[in-house]
Amino acid sequence: MDRRASGRLEAEVLAVLWASPEPVSAEEVRVRLGGGLAHTTVSTILARLHAKGAVIRELVSRNYVYRPVLDEAGLVASRMRALLEDQRDRTGVLSQFVAGLDRRALEALRQALEGEGGR
């Protein structure tokens, strides 16, 4: 697996952990990621994240369950938000996935999605 793909998987695993309200096992992470990943691939990523201190794990009925840890960058979240807000109009260095929609744009979006059976 090349470095880029493994970085992407790492981000996906972290996203799954953060999206879940409870600690999850490696097997649950694998199932939620889908896409036919091997159990060892997921375990390896979780072990690496654990070694970096990005997740903590505990034993629950002879199985490890994983919980994400707020890192230093997350702790300066307010600064990130401030940076983003500061940027929005003056420069374009940061790009948000969606820039915030007005009603008209949302309507256009809804119409564009209708033919596709949007949720």
């Binding site: 981000a11 953060w18 994240l49």
Partner: peptide
């Protein structure tokens, strides 16, 4: 703006930084 972003990016451990108490947003740093 770029150096602010670079400095903040350096402080994170993983590929993904999660903001626990923020309004919904996602962006590239």
């Amino acid at each position: 703006a770029l150096s602010d972003a670079w400095r903040l990016a350096r402080r994170s451990m993983g590929a993904l930084v999660v903001l626990p108490d923020e309004r919904p947003t996602v962006f590239a740093l």
